[in-house]
Amino acid sequence: MPHDPLYIRVPESELVWHPLDAVTLVYHRRSGQTHIVMEPVPQILSVMQDRAMDAPAIAARLAEDYELPQTDAAAIIGARLEELAALGLAERVSPGQADGAEGGP
């Protein structure tokens, strides 16, 4: 059975958050890019912290604080993670790398 891919997010120190009515603006210091994101993206990033996580694990953590759809929460989160990876705000890691990433060099 294929595993859900693991992701790790950029460190909090690289991001500047600014909520503005219905959206959240994120300035990414390292790329110099501004992203406009909506729920559940800020929540996903906030749950991930410095750990490598997959979509089901993030869904489980989010379910503690938010009402999530019963069926496809993990799929929705998986799609957002792919988008975050395309923007460079998260990165797919292999399980081996994830261990190293936890402690940091």
């Binding site: 500047v16 600014h18 503005l20 603006l25 300035y27 210091r29 110099g32 501004t34």
Partner: peptide
């Protein structure tokens, strides 16, 4: 874009 974070701060404050 060229102003980086300073531009972001100025524009969000304005908006």
């Amino acid at each position: 874009v060229a102003l980086g974070e300073a531009g972001f701060a100025a524009l969000t404050r304005f908006c």
